[in-house]
Amino acid sequence: MAANENDREVSRLWRIVRTTKQMCADRGYELTEEECNISLDSFRQQYTDETGAPQRTKMAFTARPAEAMLKRYTPLPRAGQSDGPEPQIGTVHVEFSGSANIGIKDIKAFAQLLSEKNYYTGIFVTASAPTSSALKIIPSLLPTIMEIFREEDLLVNISRHELVPKHLLLSPEEKRSLLERYRLKETQLPRIRVDDPMAKYLGLRRGQVVKIIRKSETAGRYASYRWAI
């Protein structure tokens, strides 16, 4: 009975870890193909103890942004600035927590770890919903960016669903040329909320623009743009 339960838990966590890694790879972090599509057997070998129970602490991982991602996150140079601006992205650290209750203390401890190790972004995957006040302190942790995901939201990779169109984050340069091309102000674009599931998947920040490419019966492909707010 216990072994059966462990099996269920392992395969559940396997899907969660796989989706998390695919998400990081889709955002542009350096992760290999085999890491993202790990098989259940090798997952079981790596992340379970002798009894077959999964070890969430072992699943934590860190990834560096790839060259293309650094470029996409570099803001436009300002007039009068001699050196190029710093890219607003850095290493990401992902941790998994299986505890039944996530309070202010747990969030603070994770934030402490992030700032100690100098990680730019932290992703905290929790088995249960954090308390409301724990969620409220996240904006006060800036400049560290912390994202919280529920395990059940990562069981399935939503971006691979057939009804979800392809979302592409535009770099500041691409955004500028888009606005110039259509003679728009960014406020005139359609919007997407930053707590939209796909926006959370891509880790969108306020003011970024995504290009959404969907299939169209009449036009073949149809691109639309959304301004994250």
């Binding site: 309070g103 202010i104 203390k105 308390t131 409301s132 006040s133 724990a134």
Partner: peptide
């Protein structure tokens, strides 16, 4: 209420 919740967790 949220203070009580946090303290209990702690």
């Amino acid at each position: 209420d949220s203070l009580v919740e946090e303290r209990t967790l702690d």
